[in-house]
Write a protein that binds this DNA or RNA. Sequence first.
DNA 1: TATGAATGAGTATTCATTCAT
DNA 2: GATGAATGAATACTCATTCAT
Lengths: 211, 211, 211, 211
Amino acid sequence: MLKKVPKQARSEHMVACILAGATRVLDAVPLAEATTNHIAEVAGVSIGSLYQYFGSKEAIAHCLLHQHLEQTVGLLREIRIASRGCPVEERMRLSFLEVLRDHRSHPMLHLNLTAVTQREDFPPSQLKQVVGRMIDEIALGLAEEHPEADPDEIRVCATLRHQSSMLLAHAALDRRRFGQDSLVMDYFDTLSAAQLSLLDRRPVRRAPQSS
Amino acid sequence: MLKKVPKQARSEHMVACILAGATRVLDAVPLAEATTNHIAEVAGVSIGSLYQYFGSKEAIAHCLLHQHLEQTVGLLREIRIASRGCPVEERMRLSFLEVLRDHRSHPMLHLNLTAVTQREDFPPSQLKQVVGRMIDEIALGLAEEHPEADPDEIRVCATLRHQSSMLLAHAALDRRRFGQDSLVMDYFDTLSAAQLSLLDRRPVRRAPQSS
Amino acid sequence: MLKKVPKQARSEHMVACILAGATRVLDAVPLAEATTNHIAEVAGVSIGSLYQYFGSKEAIAHCLLHQHLEQTVGLLREIRIASRGCPVEERMRLSFLEVLRDHRSHPMLHLNLTAVTQREDFPPSQLKQVVGRMIDEIALGLAEEHPEADPDEIRVCATLRHQSSMLLAHAALDRRRFGQDSLVMDYFDTLSAAQLSLLDRRPVRRAPQSS
Amino acid sequence: MLKKVPKQARSEHMVACILAGATRVLDAVPLAEATTNHIAEVAGVSIGSLYQYFGSKEAIAHCLLHQHLEQTVGLLREIRIASRGCPVEERMRLSFLEVLRDHRSHPMLHLNLTAVTQREDFPPSQLKQVVGRMIDEIALGLAEEHPEADPDEIRVCATLRHQSSMLLAHAALDRRRFGQDSLVMDYFDTLSAAQLSLLDRRPVRRAPQSS
DNA sequence: TATGAATGAGTATTCATTCAT
DNA sequence: GATGAATGAATACTCATTCAT
């Protein structure tokens, strides 16, 4: 990802500055419209230095995405541990609220980073690993609630939760549709319950309570 | 939308070619990276001709989106009319399968068109109208099933269905995660039932705090 | 000049329309910014027809210039003949007023046509002839006043008059400098007198009357 | 005027090269037909570098015009100071010879720069100031000769002198008409005397109607 | 190592001109 | 002849990337 691993304090600070600049820039314009010169300028770093550490514009985006995923995984772990003992719905909701908060603070950024992921030429290895760790973390949470469930099934379910949380959080950014968060949370609760019921092998389909 | 309305057969063919080319190109790369020259080349049309009918790169994307939405609205209507008498779940599923098939045939394209929609400078009127018609069409389907429901509530529900169908269809594109459609349909059925139950005012959620 | 000499009434009308359109367009924008499509549109003629009669954009400008010079030569002749018997200054002034009026009615056009003349690749023969006739006409006027003067000298003087009249008329278009025509005419009279004195072989130089 | 002020020696050289190239190009073709790529090529500089310092094609022309006017103002000042004590005609002639020499060395260039001035969208401030300084300089010369004259009248006269010098110098470029400079100088002397006499309030005109 | 000047391939768009109808 | 759709070379300008200082 990084062209050169920063060893000295100065280098580390440089890389941090560049990423901070990139965060600000990519939170305002799509990656394709963001220029490296602009990122360097906002970062308060010379364009030459930027290329000392990042081989290309995409490398910056990838690094940012990586950094962000790592951060989120950490947060989710903390919440999982801290919320032990709470009712399921509450635990699910707490995690999602964290994701939501994160998206709300950098609306465009997440759209951009997701777009990077969708590219055909998306580079695998490094980033796939972090996504994997994210799924693992979610799976851990589900396993705590359903110790009896098949691990494979739990992973599939975790993957779905990850996907849908991201999608819902993105959608929630559109204030025109989701004016109030209560609507989003309602939606989330419904989704979440449905998903959990899938895990219970007792599908909700066909008007369950109406019988 | 179009700079000049094609009158002769030749012109119509030209516009069709350009849109076909744009479809192929935008199904491969994000709009920001697609070049007008490339679109023209793939369309087998000179760049000058492209600009004879479309004032800008964005105009092409907008036209494509418009065309596609119109098509989908039409399909949904046909399905709604043809499926009268079938059980609810079946009707819902038929519509969604259509959406899914469409996404599957042009995976990237839909991602791109959605991205266009998210742009801040997204132009209103023309396209917003078609999105409106789409919601209306979904609302009609719901109203047939719930004639007693409040029209406003139906529209909200229709909007949510539209959103979630899109989200699910997008997610389903990721073959790495949804290898078999049965999984997607399971997911859809669950979601769909949950949403319908919301309309019934009998939420699916298990043990909400309100009890 | 013309690709094809119009023979029929319809063709002549066509050419007239094109030239009228070109006049309107070139009176608004510099030749380099005027497009043939725009000229055709303003002329109410198809672009294909325009190229039927004029081989290129420049051909139109040249034709316009030619037409205009012919017209001016004719006007100057009429004035010369009609003003016989008037005092010299009056005669000179009458001619210049005609030139000035013409420039005032199509300010930009003259600037443009002059610019065409200045081009390095300005084509000779045809247009040079008309300019020659213009000089001849002016020379005739001077000869009537100075029958005793050497013909060659008269031609040089006529050339100077032509040049300076054009220049002065152009300059007079700049209302910021020449707010009132009286100033222009004052200037013209001074110039004119100085030129006539050159012809008298009694140069004005060095404060003539102050001695 | 300049997008970025050159600080290092290298940058200054770059800007100098670009302006030199632009001078050569604009001395051959009208601004509208000069391409930035061509200017860059002739200047031996990459197109990117050109745009590093000049925001647009027009910016180059304006800068060139500015530079040239500054230079001329400086020259005229030097001549005025150096020629103190010489007879009036001599002083006037010396200044004009300088202008003439300048035009002769870059015939088309001056035509082009003047054309730039005539554009409707001609930007004010910066360039207008230099033109103002030019008039001021000429006025200073006149004031030395006519200390008793009204300052306002001197400025009007200076403006006229500036105009007519330019016009005459432009006209003199046409070697077909002004084969020898003696003719131009004769013409200039006559004009100059006439103008000075205007300032003396004793018009040269022969037999005006006011007598 | 840090800098930022220099580079030039690449982009959207225009417009003179051709030619099938 | 008249039309206007089609063409594509050409243009102004941008920006990722390199490299001399």
